[in-house]
Design a protein around this nucleic acid. Structure first.
Length: 467
DNA sequence: AAGAGCTACAACCGCGAGCCA
DNA sequence: CTGGCTCGCGGTTGTAGCTCT
C-alpha cells in the first residue's frame, strides 16, 4: 500500500521512507538529536531536514515529537501533583480535549503527557466518582441533579460576567481580600483550585448554590449595569444539546404544577406554599431567611427556565425577603424564581433574556480567548484558554444583531422589584416604590462585601466521598 | 515460574491551518 | 488562486513493564 499524500506532507515519510527507522528511540539517537539542536538552535533548519543534518535515520516528524514530548530541557518529569490534577480537570471542563491549551497552563508538561494522564488516570477517576469525564456531570444524574447542575452553570456563568463588579465591591469595602486576589471564579467552581486533597467531592451544595444565587440577586440590585443574563441562558441551554432538555423541562414543570396545584397560578412551582425559592418563611412578617430543600429550588428553576423558554413574561415580580438578623447568612435574600433573572433599573425591572428558542446566540458561550468561535478553529485557539468572564455584557450591538431578544418582552416592566411577601415592619404599609427600593438596596450594599467573602470561602465539595 | 491480562506511556498517524512561491 | 510544504494538534496504536492467576 502506497503512502498517502497527507502522510508525506505531514512529514512522516520522505523519499527514502522505507529506510526510516520507527519505534522507540535509543539513547544514541536522543544524544544526536539533542546535540544538534543544542549546537544549532532553532530556526536555521526545518524538522524535515534535521534528521539528515543530525545523522539520524528518522523522519523529521518523529524527531520533532521526540524533542517536544521528551527531550526538551524544560520538560517536567515525575507524577502530576494534586494541584496539576485539579488544574487539568478544571480546564478540561472548560475546553474539552484541547490538550495543548491545557498544557500551556501547566509549565513543563506536554500536551501528549497530559492527554495520556487524562486517558489513563483522570478519566477513570472521574468515572469512579460517577462523573462523566466528557460532560463533567454526574453519570447517573437524576433529573433533579441535572437541573441543579443547570442551575449551577447558569449562576456561575452570570456571576462570571459580574466578577469585575464583585471585585470592585469587595475592594471598596476592604473586607474581601480573597476576592481581591482575583480568584472569584475558582472559588465559585466546585472543581475549584482549592488545596483540598480530596478532589473527589464534587456534588453540588444546595445551600451554597443558594448563596451564589443570592449574591447574584444582590449584584443585580446594586449594579448600575446590566449583567449578562442572556449570555447565561445562551450558555447553558446549548450545553444540554438534545431537544430532550426542553421536553424534560416541560415534563418537570408539568409535574411540579401537578404537585402544587393547590396554589394560585402565580405561585405554582414552589414547594413551600409560595415562599421565595430557597427560603422558607417562618413568619411572613419577619421573613427570616432559611435554606429550603432541593426540590423547591428545582421547581423554581424549572419554572424560570420554562417561562424563559416559552417566551412568557414572568407572572410575578422577583421577591426579596428582608432579613432580621445582624449576621451575614441570615440576611441572604430570597428570590422568586417565578420571575426570570432581571436587571435592575430604577423603579422597574426590565426582563433581560433571550426568549426565542430559535435565536439563541451561541456565540455567548465560553470562547477561546481572543479568537472568534467557528467550526474551523484558528490555530491561536489552541494557545489560549477560554475567558472565564463571559465574552461581553449584552451590548447595543448584540441586541441589534439579535433583535428578537428583547422584542418579546421589552415592553414588559413590572411595578416593583420589592413586592416582598414579607415586608419589613416599618414598610409594611408603605407604597412608595422608590422608598422600598432604596431600603432594600441599602441593606444589600451594606452586606455585600461580607456575603461575597462568605461565598468565596465556601467549600463546594461535599456529599461524595471517594476511597 | 510462566503466561495471560492490564496499565502507562511513548510514538505513530491523519488531518488541517498557515505560509509561501 | 493553487499547490506544496511545514508545523501543530488530537486520536490511536504499539509495547514495555507490571500484576494476577
Amino acid at each position: 500500500m502506497g503512502r498517502s499524500a497527507s502522510a508525506s506532507a505531514s512529514g512522516w515519510y520522505d523519499e527514502k521512507s522505507s529506510l526510516v527507522k520507527k519505534g522507540p528511540w535509543t539513547p544514541e539517537e536522543d544524544e544526536k538529536l539533542v546535540e544538534y539542536i543544542k549546537r544549532y538552535g532553532h530556526g536555521s533548519w526545518s524538522w524535515r531536514a534535521l534528521p539528515k543534518l543530525a545523522g539520524l535515520n528518522r523522519c523529521g516528524k518523529s524527531c520533532r515529537l521526540r524533542w517536544t514530548n521528551y527531550l526538551r530541557p524544560d520538560i517536567k518529569r515525575g507524577n502530576f501533583s494534586q494541584e496539576e490534577e485539579q488544574t487539568i480537570i478544571n480546564l478540561h471542563a472548560l475546553v474539552g480535549n484541547k490538550w495543548s491549551a491545557i498544557a500551556n497552563n501547566l509549565p513543563g508538561r506536554t500536551d501528549n503527557e497530559i492527554k495520556n494522564f487524562w486517558n489513563t488516570h483522570l478519566k477513570k477517576k472521574l468515572l469512579q466518582m460517577g462523573i462523566d469525564p466528557v460532560t463533567h456531570r454526574p453519570v447517573t444524574a437524576t433529573n433533579s441533579d441535572n437541573i441543579h447542575h443547570l442551575y449551577y452553570l447558569m449562576i456561575n456563568h452570570i456571576l462570571s460576567s459580574l466578577a469585575p463588579q464583585l471585585l470592585a465591591s469587595s475592594s471598596s469595602s476592604g473586607t474581601c481580600s480573597s476576592l481581591a486576589n482575583n480568584n472569584l471564579m475558582m472559588n465559585m467552581n466546585p472543581w475549584g483550585n482549592n488545596n483540598n486533597a480530596d478532589l473527589m467531592r464534587l456534588h453540588y451544595s444546595d445551600d451554597k448554590i443558594q448563596v451564589l444565587r443570592n449574591i447574584l440577586v444582590q449584584q443585580l440590585l446594586s449594579s448600575t449595569s446590566t449583567p449578562n443574563v442572556e449570555a447565561g441562558f445562551n450558555y447553558l441551554l446549548p450545553s444540554y444539546s438534545s431537544s430532550s432538555v426542553h421536553d424534560h423541562i416541560d415534563h418537570e414543570y408539568s409535574r411540579v404544577n401537578i404537585n402544587h396545584n393547590n396554589y394560585s397560578p402565580h405561585l405554582q412551582g414552589f414547594g413551600n406554599g409560595g415562599a421565595p425559592i430557597g427560603f422558607v418563611p417562618q413568619n411572613p412578617t419577619h421573613a427570616i431567611a432559611q435554606p429550603s430543600n432541593l426540590s423547591s429550588n428545582i421547581s423554581g428553576l424549572l419554572k424560570a427556565v420554562h417561562d424563559l423558554d416559552h417566551s412568557q413574561p414572568p407572572r410575578t415580580p422577583p421577591v426579596l425577603v428582608p432579613s432580621s438578623g445582624s449576621g451575614t447568612s441570615d440576611k441572604l435574600l430570597g428570590y422568586d424564581h417565578h420571575a426570570p433573572f432581571f436587571s435592575s433599573t430604577t423603579g422597574s425591572n426590565k426582563i433581560c433574556t433571550n426568549t426565542n428558542n430559535n435565536n439563541r446566540d451561541h456565540s455567548q458561550q465560553l470562547k477561546l480567548g481572543g479568537s472568534s468561535s467557528s467550526n474551523a478553529t484558528p490555530r491561536d485557539d489552541h494557545d489560549q484558554l477560554p475567558l472565564l468572564v463571559s465574552s461581553a455584557a449584552p451590548s447595543p450591538e448584540s441586541s441589534a444583531a439579535n433583535p428578537t431578544v428583547e422584542n418579546n418582552i421589552s415592553n414588559t416592566t413590572y411595578s416593583t422589584t420589592f413586592e416582598a411577601w414579607g415586608n419589613p415592619p416599618d414598610l409594611m404599609d408603605h407604597d412608595d416604590e422608590a422608598t422600598n427600593h432604596s431600603y432594600w438596596k441599602d441593606i444589600i450594599l451594606e452586606d455585600m462585601a461580607n456575603l461575597v467573602e462568605e461565598v468565596s470561602q465556601f467549600d463546594f465539595r461535599h456529599d461524595i466521598s471517594i476511597n
